[in-house]
Design a protein around this nucleic acid. Sequence first.
RNA 1: GCGGACGUGGCGGAAUGGUAGACGCCGGGGACUUAAAAUCCCCUGAGCUUGGCUCGUGUGGGUUCGAGUCCCACCGUCCGCACCA
Length: 859
Amino acid sequence: MTIDRFDPAAADPRWQAVWDERQCFRADDNTARPRSFVLEMFPYPSGRIHIGHVRNYTMGDVLARTKRMQGFEVLHPMGWDAFGMPAENAAMEQGVHPGGWTRANIEAMKKQLKRLGFALDWSRELSTCEPDYYGHEQALFLDLYAAGLVYRKESAVNWDPVDQTVLANEQVIDGRGWRSGALVEKRKLSQWFLKITDFADELLDGLDTLEGWPEKVRLMQENWIGKSQGVEFAFAPLVPLMDPIRVYSTRPDTIFGASFVAVAAEHPIAQGLAATSPEAQAFIELCRSGGTTAAELETAEKLGFDSGLKVAHPFDAGITLPVYIANFVLMDYGTGAVFGCPAHDQRDIEFARKYGLPVIRVVADGDQTDPVFTGNEAYTGPGVVVNSRFLDGMTIDAAKAAVITRAESGGWGSGKTVWRLRDWGVSRQRYWGTPIPFIHCEVCGIVPVPKKQLPVILPDDVDFSVPGNPLARHPTWKHVDCPACGKPATRETDTLDTFVNSSWYFLRFASQPADRPFDPAGIAKWLPVEQYIGGIEHAILHLLYARFWTRALERIGLIGVKEPFASLFTQGMVTHETYQRRSTTTVHTTDASGSKSEEMTVEQWIEPAHVEKREDGKYYVKNTDDNVIVGRTIKMSKSKKNVVDPDDIIAQYGADAVRWFMLSDSPPERDLPWSEAGIEGCARFVQRLWRLFGQYDAGATGEDKALDRRRDQAVHAATADIAALGFNKAVARIYDLANAIDKARPSASRSAAIRTLLLLVAPMMPHLAEEAWAMIGGEGLIAEAAWPRPDPALLIEDEVTIAIQVKGKLRDTLTVAKGLPREELEALALASDKVQRALEGAEVKKMIVVPDRLVNIVA
RNA sequence: GCGGACGUGGCGGAAUGGUAGACGCCGGGGACUUAAAAUCCCCUGAGCUUGGCUCGUGUGGGUUCGAGUCCCACCGUCCGCACCA
């Protein structure tokens, strides 16, 4: 007897408990099976799982479960990226302890993840805020320090004077702190840095080996690393006592087109000038006040200040160039000074035209070689060098090489590679992070904490009632004896950037001994991660830092892998329509002219749960007659209220329907629009499958060759689709097979197809699958059953449908035996009434035959 | 400005240069039911002189026997980066 409805509320927790109890998804380090490490980016424990997590982890879960059924030993772990600002904000706003807040969030979110039935190895769960994680991180940091990859230097930071803390660039909005609203100051602080620039070349070249990564992400990293090859050289000043001005250029070939030199406002020359010239001082102030947003920069005018200084052209001391302070030159790129060649650089031509400087053509534009360059558009294309003395007639590349050779032999310059990538500043004046394991001693200087004293544990008794770093003002924590000389000393009170925590967690998942960060043999077993899945927002920072840490640990001999993630998949967002109620209200204002009342239109975001579509096809606020305006479908966000809570929908539809929705319709790399109708359709399909599985009859007899064929074709296609992460296509195959089974008469073939269908949906709808597997008498758990293998013979059709075209237009189709010879196909095509009608007696000139596919008659 | 992706029914989307619109959602019609829900069946790109024909994958060209797919130019949307010398 079968039950006519599948009840997720009862079945889901029951199977989750069985998986837990049997430790089904625990990865065995000592397996003889082939291994697969499937990993999704671990979440920040903000308090609730959001729908984006559900999509991310569902994809990884389908992959992990499928791999397991295919005979792999799968490592599919989960953990918590648990340090960070939100915990401290909660502490300040709600008076709770960051640790308590974080751990409670982890408990809540873990429950939510369990409700979705993910096949995770919880025995390896880790949380970066616990000493048994961050202590090992401190040890690794000391290893990197010993290897010379960690250093300290003075560096400018964004300082919020009210909150008394350093802000990340992303936390500075229009020059003000995002929390305090105070004007952010640039302040020089001693900061800890990781030498990621030592790996710039490796990280760049390594991108070519990452064939399993999206081209887009590789390109973004390439641009971020920003390798540029050129020459750095000096312009000799005409004033004898002044230092030469060093410039950097990627276009030394245009050196004879130079008509000015420009330095940044922060350049020593500009600063020196400001000391004596109020005008220069004022101009430098003007440069500083300029905005830095993309829009402001785009429209910003090129401005300069003539310093009155002149420098000599390196190839001809008779040519002198004026030196300007310019607002478009950046101090922190290259040397903070450039030479301007207006004819072949757009910024330079705008500047030259404004200040009446010469514009000299030195690269021929086709047959245009006139030294007098007209127009306001610089020519940056290819060409032959002209008007350039010894460079004349050379290609751009040859001229570049020639200039570099002369500069090097003349001793006034050299070829140089400049990177956009900067060393990674990891100091944060925060409590809720990994304490940096160093001690400041007045006698010995900076002293690493001896490894046997690790972990340096965060104190629990901290005070958030005033702004600033609670570690720095803690009464006792920072006072220690110097490990070197034994005299009183102080601990470093900065903590590590949270991106450090996520730069090696995948190693700790693979191997977690108590006394070391990891065991190299364990790393060798599991790494690299076979498939990594997460959001595109981590394309640069996290994914670059993780690559860097892996390479750094490899260089110092701790591990044997260079790249952590063999394949990367960046999934799209879950989106939702937005809803607004528009109403008019009367606003009373009082000002100097008296008080007045005004009608104002107010738009208010409405949650999807409060919106309903009525029979007139319009949308209303539930239980009211208020119209709802349906807005754009955008990423779910609390401010737009277009969110759905995973708990609510799991309770309403069951985990399997939610998982199925996450996989259906949209390709996984694209955005997925959430809809009520869509999830209801998924829930209906769960029930439909349940009824179909209920029709399984072990004793059925008879063969249905066509259904056998459909079955194995579906297996073949769905297997390939899942391997390629084309979940939406795999879903379509499953619908197809379900439709075919529905229509088929009872037979042994039909029962076999039902069993196969059950195996195919098992990774996607694991609870339904276990319930049905038990019902049809399957052996063990379906989570541990073998993935179906198609019979190759059944994948080959014995009949094919041939398209018959006349002059490229479809006129008829014929169903014929597979492999029918060309001549017979031609004869059959010509025999068709529809073809004859389309030909209208015209003479057949040519026939194109693609065997088993089509015939095209050209008349 | 530079770089990238994308543009196909009412919607999400399928389609090794070879039958465009698989599969799902929405919608319409019908069956079952006292009724509803659930379920099942049928239809569902547009137009027309509807046993069939014409048009149709952002626009305009091109290559090809044949183009959603390849090439050129343009339009639009989205994303990333950016006075990077």
